[in-house]
Amino acid sequence: MKTRKKLTDSNLLLVITISVFLVMYLGAVLFLGGGFTKPQSFCNILNENAALIIISCGMSLVMITGGIDISVGAVTSLVCMCCAVNLDFKGGNVFTSILIALGIGTLFGLIQGFLIAYLDVQPFIVTLAGMFFARGMTTIVNSTQFNVENEEFQALKNARILLPGIGSYNKKGTFIPAYVEIGVVVALLTVLILFVFLKWFKLGRGFYAIGGNSQSANMLGINVKRTKFFAYLICGILAGIGGFVYFMHAGSGSPSHASGAEMNAIASSIIGGTMLTGGSGNIIGTLFGVLSLSTIKNIVSSLGLDDAWWTNITVAAMICLFIVIQSVVLSGKNKSHH
């Protein structure tokens, strides 16, 4: 009885997410074989999605409070462009680029958080304006794509962390160890810190409280406005960090960078068991949401349906599936309460 009770909450959704991911990945390894059997292909999923993991974590935080932030993708793009311009044209170094990335993210978080929490404007509209602003600013800063040639940055971009003992043998029989990029370490650290923060810190618990019911949270003595403000601030900062990680992976600035990342982040959060209605969600789930999303994309392309259209359709079908699971779980939970 006790374990059942523990599972009825968001934990059940988390278990579903993780098991779906495992089934999908193991299925791919068993039936498709090929690239999926190599540890490096799993590491590549992490390498490519490190930025998305960070952005999705911020999105999950905001969604737990019952809001939404659709500006994150555009902020990522703006950060990439500003850092690239700083490195290539303005003669800046990596350190100032990191400061710029954090500054942009914090600024967006501060302004959006203030408007949403203290002026009571709807989050969708504020962050929509934020998205428009960031996308427009990106093209104003520089309207074309270009690669960054700064040496210091190239060294950082190509830095690889080898995983000891994990790897595969190539055709000649030499052992090639698997590697991850620095961004992955940042992403996993972010997940860990946020997990601890949401679980054991007063502010983190406050996010769940105001997402569940902001009125009763208020009565319990939680400063609803301040809590909300911090949720958007953290989401903005994470978008800045995510932007720099994206920049480290892509190595270029472009107005079309990270287009649609906000929707991917929302989809990952939903797949990870975070509800848009707020009050429930888990950062670990979000991590697996991102992994599931990109695994299914890889499966589709390795099936030979190498068409952007097909990827979109499968992703949509997957979101649909998870939404239905969520609503079934929720309705079951409500019934058991009555």
Binding site: L115, Y118, V121, A129, M131, R135, G136, T139, I140
Partner: peptide
């Protein structure tokens, strides 16, 4: 204004309007 930079200006207008019409303000 080039069409790709249009959203930035639109956003400023939207924010001003939204802030002015916010119940608190």
């Amino acid at each position: 204004v080039p069409s790709s930079a249009l959203p930035a200006y639109k956003a400023v207008v939207v924010i001003v309007l939204v802030v002015l019409s916010a119940p608190v303000v």
